[in-house]
């Protein structure tokens, strides 16, 4: 696959604690994801999945614990710190600029300027940007509508694909990249879910580390190499996807099954 060092986790969190006021949303969480690995993060509503993902993306600072990116300890003060370290997040609520077309949405923040004096004045090369967006979507295998279509004129599924692709493009090519997805298929029908599944697998094959939060167990079966299960802010299981009884997974999610890490509970 890639020349990335596959013994060091792309992202490694240890002993993460996070409080929202008096609420302890995360308690002593250890979590890692290897390059090219897809980890499914499961748990019931309010288990702390989104919160943990936000810690990874720099949106929240943990009260306790350390974060390492490819072995190097980091401390994120904002999502842009994390994105500089190669970590991209797709949020639960889609963040597209409705009135703008697909190309603009994919290119914003990394526009191509025209050559020569016009470029110095900040003129953009619209054609080149469309071409690039088109080829990037082609490479991801998710071209769904013409680049000039405003995103408000896309179906919910197409929009979600564009939103996922926008983050995917930013990490793809960067073999050290980490992609965080919060419920990427929440609004999707069968075909779009398949589309996003394929996209996730292809990204992982490029060596990108992927964490995916979802309530969709079949999706997890399709794409995840490993699942980590949270229950009320604690990690209760960390098992390979293949070979694990789905009933056990459901048991850990609902809390019916005791934690794998009982001895560590404080």
């Amino acid at each position: 696959m890639t020349s990335t060092d596959v013994t060091t986790p792309a992202l490694d969190l240890s002993h993460i604690d996070l409080h929202y006021g008096y609420v302890r949303a995360l308690a002593d969480i250890d979590f890692h994801v290897m390059p090219g690995e897809v980890v499914g993060l499961l748990g019931d509503n309010g288990a702390g999945k989104s919160t943990l993902l936000k810690v990874m993306s720099g949106a929240h600072r943990p009260s306790e614990g350390t974060i390492r990116v490819h072995g190097k300890e980091v401390s994120f003060h904002s999502p842009s710190d994390a994105s500089e370290a190669g970590i991209q997040m797709v949020y639960q609520d889609l963040a597209l600029v409705d009135a703008q077309d697909i190309s603009t949405n994919l290119n914003i923040g990394r526009e191509i300027l025209r050559k020569g004096p016009l470029g110095w004045l900040g003129f953009v090369d619209t054609k080149a940007m469309r071409k690039r967006a088109e080829s990037e979507l082609d490479r991801l295998g998710v071209r769904t509508a013409p680049m000039t279509r405003p995103t408000e004129m896309l179906s919910g599924g197409q929009r979600q694909v564009v939103a996922v692709a926008r983050s995917a493009i930013r990490v793809s090519g960067d073999a050290n990249g980490v992609l965080l997805l919060d419920e990427p298929t929440a609004a999707l029908g069968y075909e779009q879910t398949k589309l996003v599944e394929g996209l996730i697998r292809r990204m992982a094959d490029q060596g990108i580390a992927i964490v995916i939060v979802t309530h969709n167990l079949p999706l997890c079966h399709e794409v995840a190499d490993r699942v980590v299960i949270l229950n009320r802010g604690r990690k209760v299981a960390d098992v390979p996807m293949r070979g694990t009884d789905p009933d056990h997974i459901v048991g850990w999610i609902t809390g019916a099954r005791p934690s794998m890490f009982e001895d560590r509970a404080s």
């Binding site: 600029v97 914003i108 953009v124």
Partner: peptide, 16 residues
């Protein structure tokens, strides 16, 4: 221009 397009985009969805 890049700034103009971003300017417009901020009006549409600053968070994005």
């Amino acid at each position: 221009t890049r700034d103009g397009i971003r300017f417009m985009a901020v009006g549409g969805n600053a968070e994005a």
